[in-house]
């Protein structure tokens, strides 16, 4: 589904990614872990189409097409979704307005009929229940005044509505208390499907205890230095990144 080959990227001339290689097949959940500043968020941002970065080498193939050629919205239409580490506030725009616009834009590009207000409301209410969110959320401005946990729930709510083929989850566990972590983790688990893949960027193991990844990669200084199964995450938790990098 996704093939990253020798990806090099820099920002303002400073290299951040120094040759990433990664293969994600349909239905797989990959966790990318690593110390702060390793380039984890850069990787997910580049895959979603952020243009602050200069791609200096390598390629990314998504479902047979050159992903780096696509605009962010074209990637969304093609099934890529990014859950932001820091979801952005849009003052004056109601959450429900954004959600409905997003769902219908993406449906349009997938050749599906537009959801009418009633149909959409039914759908969003089901998803709210899953995320244990109050309906009042829909009528608040996008992320404005949301607590950290509310913002992350809102991201996963969007993921559930948009039904991506490849979900990029950037530090989705940061800022969550234990209960919220469980709700968000289970929300992600519900989305696991044979045709859907997940790339989960995280600093800690705690989310991985709920969302068990098929593969774990350690990213350090712009390169994947180790790959393995879930046990690698457990080792990391015990020995820390320095131990792994040195090994």
């Amino acid at each position: 589904m996704l093939t990253i080959k020798n990806l090099h990227a820099s920002i303002n001339g400073t290299p951040i990614l120094k040759g990433i290689n990664l293969e994600i097949n349909p239905g797989e959940v990959h966790a990318v872990m690593g110390p702060n500043g390793a380039g984890k968020s850069t990787l997910s941002s580049i895959l979603a189409g952020r243009d602050d970065y200069e791609i200096t080498d390598g390629e990314v193939i998504y479902q047979g097409q050159d992903l780096l050629e696509l605009e962010p919205e074209e990637r969304a239409w093609a099934g890529i979704f990014l859950s932001f580490q820091y979801p952005v506030e849009i003052p004056g725009v109601k959450n429900i307005y954004l959600l409905k616009a997003a769902v219908n834009t993406i449906r349009e590009h997938r050749g599906l009929p537009e959801l009418k207000a009633g149909e959409f409301l039914k759908l969003v209410r089901d998803k709210l229940k899953v995320m244990q969110m109050d309906e009042a959320f829909l009528h608040r401005n996008v992320n404005e005044g949301f607590s950290g946990g509310e913002k992350k729930r809102n991201e996963i709510l969007q993921m559930q509505l948009l039904e991506p083929t490849l979900a990029l989850l950037d530090e989705t566990d940061s800022g969550l208390d234990v209960d919220a972590l469980r709700v968000v983790g289970e929300g992600i688990n519900r989305m696991r499907a044979p045709e859907r893949s997940v790339l989960l960027v995280t600093h800690y193991q705690r989310l991985l205890d709920i969302v068990k990844p098929d593969f774990v990669h350690v990213l350090a200084d712009g390169r994947i230095v180790r790959s393995g199964d879930f046990s690698l995450a457990q080792r990391l938790e015990k020995e820390g990144y320095e131990g792994i990098e040195a090994a």
Partner: peptide
């Protein structure tokens, strides 16, 4: 902000 525009574009909106 570029962040706002990027956020909305990842949700399928054109620029």
């Amino acid at each position: 902000s570029d962040d706002q525009l990027f956020y909305l574009r990842t949700r399928g909106m054109s620029e």
